[in-house]
Simulated scan of single mutants.
Amino acid sequence: MPFPVTLLRARNRIGLHANSDRVLACAAQVGDVIVPVDHDDVWACDKLAAVTEAFIDDDVALWFSDGILIDAEDRSLGARLWDIVGLDDWALSQIGTADGVRRLLHAATITGGTAAIRANVVPHVLPTPELMIDGSPVFWQDAWMVLIARLLGAVVVDPRPLLGYRRHAGQLSHDENRVTTEAPRSRSAALRRDRWAAALTAARIRRDGAAGWLADDRDLILDLDRFLAARSVASGLPGRRRGILAELRRGAYRRYARGVRTALYDLAMSGRACDVGADQGPGSAESAHR
């Protein structure tokens, strides 16, 4: 290669997240911008030029583009990544807003191979949470990286398909129609996953309090964490009803759910609740999953 290459070899299998974290930490020591690449994907020849131009602005922490799906022989499959994850014009216009933050919390919007982040974001990404809910990680490594970068600076969206995203039977996220393979969730399972996503993100914000989080987005995460914590207290435990009514009074049910309708559902719910109880608050989220 016409540039220096460093190979990192682990003595043992350390897992996807730990391996990715190790590479990120190394890359952050030698460059100003990190552009993840998956071994089975293909970059457009002008991708790095686009990244370089975007990061001239010191406020930019995250860049990402569209991509096309290709097969094992580099043939186009006739689909765009943004179409698969539902990134239409309206959704793209919201990436820099509170709605964009909430979308990234669901962790299925921006594929890591289409993204680039500023290296000074990396200390706040590491370590990637490894919590599993219902057999799937709350955050894949790239989804967590993108979310943290979004909370720390401006975003540049490049509409060009600058990545060929390869689909083949051996890849981790293979599915016939989707980039990810998340199974449909029940209402309680979705609440459980959302609760942990907010708790883990809020815990990282608290851990790195001086990181320079964008104030409005930081406050949104902390507020959403409080709301989901109240919703997740197990049925029958002291304080559940009181917490739900408090969140209703302060408008959280209107901001993050369907208002009184959702509050009444929560008050009436008697089935299995989320696995984050009142005694396991958001401040302990990062240690609780280990």
Rank of each mutant, 00 (worst) to 15 (best):
E176Y: 09
I68E: 15
L237H: 11
G251Q: 09
Q94E: 11
D46L: 09
D59L: 00
H124G: 00
R192N: 15
A10W: 10
D279T: 15
V122P: 05
A246H: 07
L8I: 15
G281S: 08
A116T: 09
N177R: 11
D71P: 12
T201I: 10
R231F: 03
M132L: 09
D74W: 08
N120V: 06
W82C: 06
V233W: 04
V233D: 04
S20H: 14
P123L: 08
G239Y: 05
Q171Y: 00
P4T: 06
D71F: 13
R231H: 02
M269T: 13
V155A: 09
V33M: 07
L131N: 05
L152V: 09
E182Y: 10
R241E: 08
G86A: 03
S76L: 07
V276Y: 08
L228Y: 14
I56C: 06
P2Q: 12
A198P: 00
I70Q: 00
L228D: 00
S93Q: 02
A72C: 01
A79Q: 15
V51F: 12
R150E: 01
A198I: 03
V276L: 12
R185C: 00
L105V: 11
R193E: 13
V37R: 12
G251N: 13
T109Y: 08
W140H: 06
A198C: 11
V121A: 03
D59V: 01
A108D: 07
C274L: 01
G31D: 11
R22T: 15
S173F: 13
V60I: 11
A230H: 04
M145A: 07
A115K: 06
L237K: 14
